[in-house]
């Protein structure tokens, strides 16, 4: 335990996700001891982020404007929508540079235990986006866990429309890895989702 404000800082940092007591202490002392560290800049950004950032009216991604940079970008194809659980999933998929369509952030996954039902997700907004027939494919990219799968299967039942293809991201072996290091569940899934390469 440290005196007063130092301990308060450690406690506050420790409440952030992914930061344990030791990391919180390390960050606190970095802030205290490193001269080059600009505390006021960090404080400003923290305040600004809460003031300025909001959610895109169209897709639910984080943005500083009414619509996010991806929704505003005319080069993105409006024919494909990739449905994800959280805004951070958008960033992950963007890093691949593979996907040129638009996104839709649900804001979570169906989980009765956590009190999250379909009405708590941005599903109605998704249906509205599909109404005019511009979109020809919806890619469901919810997490490959139970709740993500349940959400995917809920959506796939809901999204039965003429001229709309609904796809789900594949799960299987990590690229560049060794087969022998894959855990049984992943390997089992890869078997289920195997593809014909010949014959």
């Amino acid at each position: 335990m440290y005196e007063g404000i130092v301990q308060e800082l450690i406690d506050e940092l420790g409440r952030l996700p992914g930061i344990g007591p030791k990391s919180a202490q390390r960050i606190a002392f970095h802030i205290l001891q490193t001269e080059a560290f600009d505390v006021s800049r960090l404080a400003e950004v923290l305040v600004e982020v809460r003031e300025k950032v909001r959610f895109c009216e169209v897709c639910g991604n984080v943005t500083e404007q009414e619509r996010c940079a991806i929704c505003r970008d005319p080069r993105r194809s409006a024919a494909t929508i990739c449905v994800v659980e959280e805004a951070k999933d958008v960033a992950a998929i963007e890093r691949t540079r593979e996907f040129k369509g638009l996104y839709h952030v649900l804001g979570g996954a169906i989980s009765p235990i956590d009190g999250v039902g379909p009405e708590d997700l941005r599903i109605r907004q998704l249906m509205e986006r599909l109404a005019d027939g511009t979109v020809t494919e919806v890619i469901i990219a919810t997490d490959p866990n139970l709740e993500g799968e349940a959400t995917a299967s809920y959506l796939s039942r809901l999204l039965v429309q003429p001229n709309l293809r609904v796809t789900r991201l594949a799960s299987g072996l990590p690229v560049g890895g060794d087969l022998e290091y894959a855990d049984e569940v992943t390997l089992g899934r890869a078997f289920e989702g195997r593809r014909v390469v010949q014959g």
Binding site: I110, P112, G117, P118, L146, E149, A150, S153
Partner: peptide
């Protein structure tokens, strides 16, 4: 009605 349709999803799993 809404809860029932979610129930179908869990039934499947």
């Amino acid at each position: 009605g809404n809860d029932l349709s979610t129930l179908d999803v869990w039934d499947e799993r």
